[in-house]
């Protein structure tokens, strides 16, 4: 029973991380229906940005955090401006392939600069955050990631629901020509969505880095694991992404604990194929019925 509970807690916290890292992905998909295959690399970029500031430049942690956020916001803008803007209006295939190319490019670049080793952040989380409950323990990183996740979810919920930019983004996602004709600046919305996505990715990247250490390969695998999560939840639903993340996290941990450790890595993808066959729009995704 204790084993089960520990697996459950681990699965829950890892699942929450998946959900957190899926947010940036859903963000881009929601506004421009681009599948971002460079997602893992965005996570890694944010994490390394923070690493440079905190370990190499030795700035205070809060300042590092803020600078990373601003820097990644700018980075997202630049990525959109340089690489995605020229392809507006092209076929979706080409945009998807572009993100595949971007992912290879960024990954190679980061491997060249930082190498494939594991890097670590200095310890800065207060121990008081960790929860000890009988034999079950929840380390402080998980608690803090949970808190950060909740804050972000709340902020984004409000952003999409009430702010004018959030409403523009939803309108573009809903029907691009209609949004254009009503005077929404679609280009700015795309740029903004990439910028925000980069910020969210940086946040998740930092949290992941605190937990597992930062490693380019690991983070880019993490980026691909976003796909089962978002497909399960429904591609364009933030709530779905969270639930999907938690389900996938639990599933992974239970498979790892009870069946075999090696199967753990591949279980999400098996689930992914099954969902695609049975219910391609996921749990909460908007169903566009088109039978061809």
């Amino acid at each position: 029973m204790e084993f089960f509970a520990q697996l459950f807690i681990n699965g829950l916290s890892i699942g929450f991380l998946y959900a957190l890292s899926a947010l940036g992905f859903v963000m881009i998909f929601k506004s421009s229906s681009v599948l971002n295959f460079a997602h893992g690399e965005l996570l890694a970029l944010g994490a390394f940005f923070f690493l440079i500031l905190s370990v190499w430049a030795k700035l205070p942690i809060v300042l590092c955090f803020l600078v990373t956020l601003v820097g990644c916001f700018a980075l997202g803008f630049i990525i959109e401006r340089l690489f995605l803007r020229p392809l507006i209006g092209e076929a979706l295939i080409e945009v998807i392939m572009l993100t595949v190319g971007l992912s290879a490019m960024f990954k190679g670049l980061m491997l060249l600069i930082f190498g494939g080793n594991l890097h670590n952040y200095p310890d800065f989380l207060p121990e008081a955050l960790s929860i000890q409950w009988g034999a079950i323990s929840v380390p402080s990183v998980y608690v803090s990631s949970f808190i950060i996740g909740l804050i972000f979810l709340g902020v984004f919920g409000f952003f999409f629901k009430y702010s004018s930019h959030g409403i523009y983004m939803r309108s573009v996602a809903d029907h691009q020509p209609a949004a254009l004709s009503l005077g929404v600046n679609v280009r700015r919305v795309f740029a903004l969505s990439w910028a925000i996505a980069a910020v969210v990715c940086a946040m998740s990247g930092i949290v992941l880095g605190i937990i597992n250490g930062i490693n380019v390969h690991q983070l880019s695998t993490m980026g691909l694991k976003v796909f089962p999560v978002v497909i399960l939840g429904g591609l364009d639903s933030i709530g779905g992404a969270i639930l999907g993340g938690i389900i996938i996290g639990l599933l992974e941990n239970f498979t790892g604990g009870y069946i075999s450790t090696s199967l753990r890595e591949v279980v999400p993808y098996i689930v992914l194929v099954l969902i695609l066959l049975v219910k391609p729009y996921g749990l909460f995704g908007s169903e566009e019925i088109e039978r061809v």
């Binding site: 190319g101 971007l102 290879a104 490019m105 190679g108 491997l111 060249l112």
Partner: peptide, 10 residues
């Protein structure tokens, strides 16, 4: 290689 391939695709 990875970097150059990605760059070439882009």
């Amino acid at each position: 290689r990875e970097f150059v391939f990605g760059l070439a695709i882009v």
